[in-house]
């Protein structure tokens, strides 16, 4: 009985959370963005920084709201590793909330996002204002990513490009590795797990898991890039080897998750 009540509550709470996210996204687009563009004395880069901070604060409150509603709990390890600038942060991508968590932890975050989100009314406000990088251009993406890192942003990328399929077969795009080898940046890897796994690709939001979701984010030791360049002798090849390495790195995490 109690279990059933808990479950119904979590369906309702998830609905509340999704609505809040949507309303927040619309407000960013229709209220915050016009107000920000009225601040004519600010430079474009200053506006983007303010918007990034605002999205960071909104996401941190949103995570707080979801905990308070009883949708999820979370634990974070190695947070001090994120207290640096110019980081290339790469993470696996099991759920819809991964980006919300990561941006809630990183005040000056830039992020590579799906091009379609820049056209979605609930997300476009945030994406326009923050100047996040859209993934629709291949080679432009690498240049944009390197520029962002040199400006000192912490760049968040999910190298899978989209959430991991439920059957666990992970496939990584090479854009992130190319940014690392061509921009000469070490990688700060973050592994994300959600137990029980929910909000995956293709799963409707109202199918809540049997128990409250428990997120574990682990910010791990940096992965040095120079050895990959030394071993490969060329950037294109180094990016390929690094992508294979990252695939194994994250796939191992997913596998150990499946066993747990």
């Amino acid at each position: 009985m109690l279990e059933r009540v808990d479950r119904y509550w979590r369906v309702l709470a998830t609905g509340i959370a999704f609505t809040t996210f949507g309303v927040g996204g619309l407000l960013l687009w229709l209220v915050f963005l016009p107000l920000l563009s009225l601040c004519f004395w600010l430079q474009a880069s200053q506006r983007a920084s303010i918007a990034r901070w605002a999205v960071h604060a909104c996401f941190a409150s949103f995570v707080g709201l979801m905990c308070w509603l009883g949708i999820l709990r979370y634990e974070i390890h190695g947070l001090d590793r994120l207290r640096r600038g110019g980081l290339l942060i790469l993470a696996n991508h099991p759920t819809l909330l991964d980006v919300v968590f990561l941006i809630s932890l990183v005040p000056n975050a830039d992020c590579v996002v799906k091009g379609s989100l820049a056209r979605n009314p609930f997300t476009r406000g945030a994406i326009c204002a923050t100047n996040y990088i859209c993934n629709d251009s291949g080679s432009g993406l690498v240049e944009d990513g390197i520029r962002s890192l040199r400006q000192g942003s912490n760049l968040i990328i999910f190298p899978e490009g989209t959430r991991t399929p439920v059957d666990g077969k992970m496939k990584l795009q090479r854009g992130a590795a190319n940014i690392a080898v061509r921009g000469l940046r070490d990688i700060t890897p973050v592994t994300i797990r959600c137990e029980p796994l929910s909000l995956t690709k293709g799963l409707p939001w109202w199918q809540v898991p049997p128990r409250r979701m428990h997120f574990t984010l682990e910010i791990r030791d940096d992965i040095a890039i120079q050895p990959f360049l030394d071993a490969a002798g060329g950037e294109a090849l180094a990016a390929r080897h690094l992508t294979d390495y990252l695939h194994d790195y994250f796939a191992k995490e997913v596998a150990s998750h499946a066993r747990a």
């Binding site: 993406l141 060329g234 090849l237």
Partner: peptide, 29 residues
């Protein structure tokens, strides 16, 4: 030399993306 592509796969009718794993970043290279 550039991508360590398997010579067996290099035939005129090979598709760049699907068969040779050349993405848009590689194309620039």
């Amino acid at each position: 030399e550039t991508f360590d592509t398997d010579p067996v796969k290099i035939v005129p009718e090979a598709r760049l993306y699907e068969d040779l794993d050349i993405d848009s970043i590689d194309a620039v290279d």
